[in-house]
């Protein structure tokens, strides 16, 4: 469980840590939007430099971000291979039966990979420097207007923060149940798909029962501490924009301007 970095918060006191979570969420969103427009080496280079700069600013070792990338390594590889194998064009670099690797394919594949990595890095910056409760809070405030059309924003935000907190616990639990069933001889089932599907029942049922038990326990713990509904509550973490947030938005503005310029020029 320890190598899953997605959704993990690491406390700190960096510039990025101290930003208002709303600033960070808007920033992340904007960055991803802008980055998807990149189409040249120069524009990709600029977006990458920007992220690396932000990572420096978080004061966390790069290794943490690297670990965030690893779980989705296969996903990235898969997409890259798809791009490589199925982009038509010339010149052809390599040919193996129906598989044709072309120069545009290669370039596309590299671009897709960079995009993937940058998106993950940027979201990791957000989750690594922002407690889940604050993310949920920020989301609640940003989506506040939706309350008018009867979207239960407060409930959703609370659910989200609890879900985020339970992810590592469930990972841990899965490992424990796997270990227990492996010790009882689970695994290496051979046979058709039905038989294989049946083989994971001993994992799924305990996981489900355990999750349910946890949920019931948590519901009790919440009720006992006076929880009634998500709306009538005050907030410990109050959000307020500060000078730093202004600075951050200015930085973001500079990023977009430079991006547009590089895109035009190179």
């Amino acid at each position: 469980m320890n190598n899953i970095m997605i959704g993990r918060f690491v406390p700190g006191d960096s510039f990025i840590h101290r930003l208002d979570p709303r600033t960070k969420m808007i920033g992340t969103f904007l960055y991803i939007l802008v980055m998807l427009w990149a189409n040249s080496w120069a524009s990709y280079a600029w977006t990458a430099i920007f992220v690396l700069g932000l990572i420096r600013l978080t004061g966390q070792p790069f290794k943490l971000y690297w670990d965030g990338l690893k779980p989705i390594f296969w996903l990235i590889l898969f997409t890259v291979v798809l791009q490589l194998a199925f982009t038509p064009g010339t010149p052809v670099l390599y040919r193996l039966g129906p598989v044709v690797i072309t120069t545009p394919g290669l370039i596309n594949a590299i671009y897709v990979m960079i995009r993937f990595v940058l998106i993950i890095l940027m979201s990791t910056i957000l989750t690594l420097t922002t407690p889940p409760t604050s993310i949920a809070n920020a989301l609640e405030m940003l989506l506040g207007p939706l309350k008018k059309i009867k979207v239960p924003v407060a409930e959703l935000a609370l659910m989200l923060s609890i879900a985020l907190r339970f992810v590592p616990l469930l990972m841990d639990e899965t490992q424990k149940i796997m270990n227990a069933q492996k010790s009882r001889g689970m695994g290496f089932s051979t046979g058709g798909p039905v038989k294989r599907a049946k083989a994971i029942i001993p994992l799924l049922i305990p996981l489900f029962v355990g999750a349910l038990q946890r949920a019931l326990d948590l519901a009790n713990a919440m009720e006992v501490r006076g929880f009634r509904d998500a709306v009538q509550r005050t907030k410990y973490r109050v959000l307020h924009y500060e000078k730093n947030d202004g600075l951050a938005f200015a930085g973001l503005f500079v990023f977009v301007v430079v991006f547009v310029v590089t895109k035009r020029l190179f």
């Binding site: 918060f9 889940p132 946890r214 326990d217 713990a221 501490r225 509550r233 005050t234 410990y236 973490r237």
Partner: peptide, 17 residues
């Protein structure tokens, strides 16, 4: 199973909220 908050302080705050 009884932690609601993401940090120790957030958890203590939950009941106060």
């Amino acid at each position: 199973n009884q932690f609601v908050g993401a940090t120790v302080a957030d958890d203590v705050a939950f009941g106060l909220e």
